[in-house]
Every structure is written in structure tokens, then in C-alpha cells.
Design a protein around this nucleic acid. Sequence first.
DNA 1: TATGAATGAGGATTCATTCAT
DNA 2: GATGAATGAATCCTCATTCAT
Lengths: 229, 229, 229, 229
Amino acid sequence: MQQKGRRSRAAVPALAGNARMARQAERRGAILAAALEEFAASGFAATRLDDVARRAGVAKGTIYLYFNDKEHLFQELVRAELSPIVGAVATPQMAQLPPQAIAEIIADIFVREIFGTRRKDVIRLVITEGARFPKLAEFYYHEVIERVMTALRPILTRAVERGELPNDALARFPQLLVAPALVALVWNSMFDRFAPLDVRDLMRAHLDLLFGERTSSGKSARNSPRNSL
Amino acid sequence: MQQKGRRSRAAVPALAGNARMARQAERRGAILAAALEEFAASGFAATRLDDVARRAGVAKGTIYLYFNDKEHLFQELVRAELSPIVGAVATPQMAQLPPQAIAEIIADIFVREIFGTRRKDVIRLVITEGARFPKLAEFYYHEVIERVMTALRPILTRAVERGELPNDALARFPQLLVAPALVALVWNSMFDRFAPLDVRDLMRAHLDLLFGERTSSGKSARNSPRNSL
Amino acid sequence: MQQKGRRSRAAVPALAGNARMARQAERRGAILAAALEEFAASGFAATRLDDVARRAGVAKGTIYLYFNDKEHLFQELVRAELSPIVGAVATPQMAQLPPQAIAEIIADIFVREIFGTRRKDVIRLVITEGARFPKLAEFYYHEVIERVMTALRPILTRAVERGELPNDALARFPQLLVAPALVALVWNSMFDRFAPLDVRDLMRAHLDLLFGERTSSGKSARNSPRNSL
Amino acid sequence: MQQKGRRSRAAVPALAGNARMARQAERRGAILAAALEEFAASGFAATRLDDVARRAGVAKGTIYLYFNDKEHLFQELVRAELSPIVGAVATPQMAQLPPQAIAEIIADIFVREIFGTRRKDVIRLVITEGARFPKLAEFYYHEVIERVMTALRPILTRAVERGELPNDALARFPQLLVAPALVALVWNSMFDRFAPLDVRDLMRAHLDLLFGERTSSGKSARNSPRNSL
DNA sequence: TATGAATGAGGATTCATTCAT
DNA sequence: GATGAATGAATCCTCATTCAT
């Protein structure tokens, strides 16, 4: 009935020395890494904290020293993994480049910084669990989507005005620039065993589609000086 | 997911009369419809058969008369909803049309037959749960993806050969044709409350991007005789 | 994060037949009886529903078919046991009797209906857990205390006016009439092994104290025609 | 309650200097004070040593330097708080006074030394947890109950012989002398919010009941020279 | 067939106690 | 002595599945 107001556990325990601090960060990291693996493999609901603890090499109770509960663990996981990357896409220098160069940079970042790392799994988790975690969707929208969109739109709009783009489709829907990345993420987790998809090639083809390249045909394109994907 | 020794039960109870048969189909349908709502709202793991039963207006045990277990219910659900649509995309007549017309038809089908119906939720479920349900992914791959790809690839390849397409990107990666549809599905379930996305416009812009349309700007495009989306 | 509104479980499952109904009542009763024993023996916090289930001869989950949770089980237990007795003390007929007769009746009820039954444990539970269960205290106050007080006060006040009582102490504090009952309950659960206390004698002595009886000395008093305790 | 093999630890850590000794006593006191507050608020089982430590301003582990475990802490708490008071009631001088004076002194002690202090909470804890802590009940019985009874009985018996009391009820059941105090303790913790109870008035009324006072009526009685409660 | 009460394995969370620093 | 991070046993509660009616 009446509960003593459960004081929210410190997200990070108070530290004393410095070795302590390092140890703490290490443990927290281990838990997050283990959680990522488990959540990615089983989804939020089906993941057992028992397994996370085992994989992280800590006791079940230890998780609760670092995270309030399963849900907080999940959300912090997404935050921790995604926060760093946000800045990369939205650098002011990009504004100076032609749209094609920007598209190539974005594709490159996706391939190397997301698809090539465990961030791939984090974003997949956002996609698969986002609808059930409004806060997560909100965080992702404001921290990632909105920022990227805000950075891209004026650049693309200007490109349209300068005649660097055939029409305003991209300026109105910057999402179209990254749609193939989404396809890659989903395909990779579901259909790769039936028909492996080379993300690099997919992204390159996407760029060809948007920015002309009249030739291309798989391997040969790799020699093209145009992109370094 | 993990199955214990479960003796397989008849998927459909034995029938006698004809009214009985109708009643059976009706019940089965009610359960599937209820299941779709619940699974779509909560995901596979978090959905309670109790809720499905209540929504379907049957007793919990009745579900087990029509489906072996929760997992079978889920998979049959996807099968039942998606089987009908598969044929539509892969009609032989389409082979005769120019790629732009085909793309428009596909976009149109997506907007009207998927996004405008509860199939939207089914496909979303495939996306969010597919990685955890190999059988589901397999079914979806063979029944939907593969068929569509098989139908599209030769058409697009021929179009490339005829010079109707600027390069072979689409022929190599027909996925690029439907990538925006995936974006729409995901966006709609997660970010619509922050920034609603008009699927029709998105698909139209996508077509503009692929097939030229040098002008366009939202509403005005709607009068364009090109597409009927 | 977001929880599907947990619909409160039916306190009593819907019934169909009549044997069902009987069976239900029986089970519910068995659980309540088992719960009383366990709660009485260990207190609310230290009681395990596992033990309650075992003692009641049902599965753990079954408890939740009849009660929302541990707390509801506890409260319903008190309600179920106490509700019947309330009426007994506050009968209108009592208003006609002289205060001494009333006191004797109350003492008698206490000895036979409470102390001699498992209601003794229920009231003890109210005493030991009441402070931690405001709702329980409230229920007990309104259903028992208040009713008894409301019934007694006017009677005692009138008795004072009629000169049947030496002063208004009892009228102002009817609690003094039942104080020894409280002593008996507490003593019985804690000190009986050191010095057993005969409740009957205690109550009789209490009455002697209040209403004169100039002699008395344990056993002999039992022959007194005055009370039938 | 149930103990596992626990090697008994020094109840008080070894001391060296004198400041150290003071510091120790201070800490021990702080822990006991904190424990009292927490136990009083939540009961034994629901109290967390974490909260006790926080309130005492020490680390959780520190509690274990001063007390073997939660149970010992609880018992020492009761001991520490009650030991001082025991002597007060059982002074030899009292033997000379008339029963009414003694009753008044006892009532006075209760109101001022128990009800007006945190000892109220300690006794309440004995009442609510005693049944679950045989050792505690035993301690309380021997250190408090028995002593008081031993001191009172001969006095009351003599008073009966001298005809200072109308009958031997009180001599046989000295508990009747303190029953209202128990009522006050219980009422205060459970029903005060519904109907506040003035302990002083209650005790006074009780004395009136026992020793005659033919008039009285609330406030006015306070001017009565008879008692100084 | 249909029901829904009953089951019990499963999993999140808590907290007394330990022990390395 | 003190600390507080770590442990893991303990326990509440859920829900897929079964089965007597």
C-alpha cells in the first residue's frame, strides 16, 4: 500500500579513489556491452538481466548499482552509443560542399561508423523497440533525426536553388538520402542468410541513382575515383 | 521461440456441418484480427494471449484450438495477411511497362494496399520481430521479397539495356525502389507525433528523384498527370 | 516505461455452474485461512505467498486469481473475518440494559467470539500491522471502533445521567471498557509462556473493578450468579 | 530470525585512546537512534539497513562493526532504550504510598517518560514485533513486566488487606492498572487521524474510574488538585 | 467444441551481509 | 576502524499452457 518513497538509486555510485573510478567505468561499460549483445539478440522483453549479468561477469544485483532497472539500462545503452555520433553528421563545414559530396560523406559515415560497428545493433534496437518506448523514440528523434534533418535541409535547399539538384525532392524529404541505410540495417538482420547484401555497394548504387553516374556495374565501379566508400 | 516437447495439435478443428465451418472460420478470423492489434501494439513478447482472447471475444483456451501456441499464432497471422498481396506486385503484365510506370504502380500499391490498411502493422511486425523469428523471416523472404525481386530484376535489367534507365543501380538493387516505403513505415510508428510524414508525398518525391520530374513542389505536383498516387 | 493499463483482476472469478461456485468459495476460503495462519505467525512482510499457497493446497498463481496481490489478500482477510462480528456489539437491544450488563455482554463476546476464535489473530494483526497499513486502520476504525463507540457512548452517557455510573469517565472514554481485552491479546501472544493469563478471569476482574463486587477471589467468583463468562 | 552460521563478531570494536572511545559511543548512539526511527516507521522486516545507515550518517558496513546483524541491532535498541526506565517504576519508596498515589505516579510516568518521548515508539515496537522475537519478548517480560508486577503486587495486596481497595481485582491483575496506557499507544499510532486521543485525559479518567472521583468532566478536571498529570 | 480456473516455471527486483581497499 | 561496491539468495508477480467440465 504505502511505499516509502524509493529514493532513486545513484546512476553512478559515488567514487572515492581513482582506481575506483576507473573500475566503475569499466564495470558500467561491461554491463552496457553485455546488455547490447543481449538486447540485440533477443529484444528488450525477452532479454534476461541474468544473462546480461553473466555476460558482463557481474552479479545480478550489480546491474542495479549502475542502472535503475531494465528499462533504464536499455535507454542508457542507446544514449551512450548514439550520443557520440550525432555531431559527426552535422558539422558546419559540410555546408560548403556540393550535395553529392555530402551524400557521399553521409554514406561513408554510415558504412564505417554505424554498419561497421555495434552501433548498427543499437540503431536496429531503436527501430524494433522504438514504438514501444516513446521516450526512446523521442530521444532518438531529437538527438539524431532532428539534428541531421536540420543540418541537411538548408544545404539541400540551397543546392536546389543553385540548380545543383534536378528538383526539390531531396530538399523536401532528406529522409530519401538515408532510406537505403535503413534497408541495409533491416535486410542485414533478416535476409542476409538468404541473399547477402553488400552495404557499400548498395550505398554506392544509391548515390549513382541520385547523382548520375551513367555507367557502373559492381566491381568496376570500385575503381571509380569518385567515391572512397 | 524455444519449444518444449509439444504434441502438435490440429491447426483447424474437425468440422461437421457447414454452418460450423463458417463459424470456425469466423472465430479463427476474430482471433487473428485481435492478435494483430495486440501484437502490433505490444510486440510479440509483451503481448498476452489473455488480451488477445478478450479482444477476440473468446476464451483463452479457444486460441489453442486454432493455433498450436503463441508463436504459431504470430506466424500464421503474418502469413494470412501477407499471402494475398504477394501476387499483386508480381503480375506478368507489368513486364511490358516502362520502369517509371512500374515504380509508380508499386508506390501506389504500397500507399493504398499496405500503408492504408492494417497490413502496415503486419509488415512492421515483420521488421521488428523478424530477426527473432527465423521462420518468419524466411517466409517473408521467400513469399514477398524474393518474388518481388524476381519479378523486378529482369524488367529493370531490360530497361537498362534499352537505355531507359541512366545506370544499372536499380537493376542491381531493386531494394532502392522500395527503400522509402520502409522509411515511411518506421517513421510513422515512431516519429509521427514529432513530425508527421505524408507517405504519398514521400513516395512521389522518391519517384521524382528517380525519374526526372524537374519541377515539383508539394501540392502542385498532385495535378501532374504522371501519377495517380 | 509505458505499461498497458493493467486491468484489475476480478476479485472473484466469473462463475458458470453451481458446483463451480461452491468450489470457488471453498478455494477462496482455503487461501484466506492459510493466509491468516501465515500472517499471524510471521507478520505481513515476512510471510511468503509461497507458504500461503502450500498451506492452502493451491499453486502460487492461484492466489492471484482470487486476490490482486499480497496486500489485497491481507486486507480482504481482515475484512472477511471482522465484518461479521461488527453487528453483534452494536445491537439496538443493548441500549435498554444497565451499563454493567452491557459491559458483561461485551466481555463475554470478546472472550467467546474473539479470543476463542481465530479472530483473535486477525485483531492482533490489525494491532501489529495497522500503523503500516493506513487503509487497514481506516477500515478497522470505521467498521469496528467507530461503530462500537457510537453504540456505547449514548448508553453510557445516559447511565451517567441516571446516576448508574459513579462518574463520566466511561462515557468520555468508552475505550476504558475494552482496554483489558487489548491487554489480553498482547499478553497472550508474548508473555503466556512466562505467565499464562486467563482472559476470562481478567475480564471478570475488570468488571469487578468497574462495577463494585466487593468480594471475589479467583475461583470462588466463578460461582457468582452475576456473570456467565 | 532464522540464523545461519554467523561467526559472532565483537559487539564493540576494540578501543585505543579515549577520544576514540567517545567517538565509538557516539556512533553507536547515532546508529541506534537512526534504527529506532526507521524501525518505528516501517517495522522490523520492512526496514532497510541502508536507510538506517544513511540516517545515522555512517556507511552500511559500519553498522556491522557495532552490531552483529539486523536482529541484534533491533534487540539492542530495545534494551538500550528501556533499561533506564525500568528502575523508575519499581522504587522501594513507592511501597509506602496508598494505591491511588501509586496509580497516579505510574500514569504520570507513562505520560511523561514514555508517551512524551521516543520510548513510546520502542514499546510500540515491542508490541508489534514481540510475537516474532521471542528473545525480545523474554527480555521485555523479565526486565519490564515482571519487575513492575513484582513491585506492584505486594503493594496492592496489602492495600486490599487494609481495605483501601474495594476488591482484589487489581491485586490479582495489576495489568488492569496499565491497560489504558496500552490503549493509548495503539490508538495513537492508528486512529489519531480519525479521532485524536488525549492520553493525559484518558489516564485521568482511568484513575477516576478506579478511585472514585464522583464528578469530573474534561477540562475542569485539570484544576482538580488530586492529580498533576 | 468451448471454457476459464489452475498451474508453475520464469524473471525482475530487493536487501542483508561480506570484504577489498 | 570505515567504507560502500558487490554479491546472490529470496520473493513477488506474470502469463503461456493445460485440462476438467
